[in-house]
Amino acid sequence: MGAVGGNGGISPRIAALGRRAGAIALAAALGLACIIGIPAPASGVPGGPQQAFAESIGDENLVDPTQRADNSFIYDTTVASLFSQASLYNDRTVQVVGEVIGDCIRAEDGKSWITLTETNADDKSSISVLLSADQAGQISHYGRYGVEGTTLQVRGTYHQACDEHDGLPDIHVTTSSVQATGADQPDTFHAADLVPGMIALIIGFALMGAFYFARERTR
């Protein structure tokens, strides 16, 4: 069987007219889209980190002047993501929120180390955060048993392995703000909570005594 030509037997003139009509229709559709304001497709990697650009213009501009021109975005992320995508965030400005736990530890040049832990209950990743004495002064509660620590939002440069601190993964903070002050939640004494233990102890000691008597009788 022989090969069928180009447009299956339609003459070249009619085909050229058809192409022209198609081009006009496409141009009209694009023009209409511009007029009614259909948004353009979003750029960036689907599911990737959100890049927090300047929230407002002027004094509130969030572009970090100490960063390189192509590296000045602020990545609004989580503590867990800093570890799971460490190379992506390395040496970039990040913004994370977490609970302050443990203690405030003295660092060099009057600065302090704190530990910020993920607020997500399922993943309690934590990271060392270096901040100034003033910023550390904002923290009223350090999380531990019976204390819910201050929830702090910090913004600064993340290092997967900090050169200044011998390879420690850390954040050098530039700005911080308190999201929630935290609270003391001390245990309240309920005598009833101790009753099962006391009963078990009494039975245990009674059995010990019974064994002692039984052994003495066999001698």
Partner: peptide, 27 residues
């Protein structure tokens, strides 16, 4: 820490009961 105290008193009681009961296997 009163809540942990209750748990550890109970654990101590269980240790004593189990330990003493096992010792009865041979006086």
């Amino acid at each position: 820490e009163w809540q942990p105290l209750g748990r550890y008193l109970l654990a101590a009681g269980i240790f004593l009961i189990a330990g003493s009961a096992l010792r009865f296997l041979s006086i």
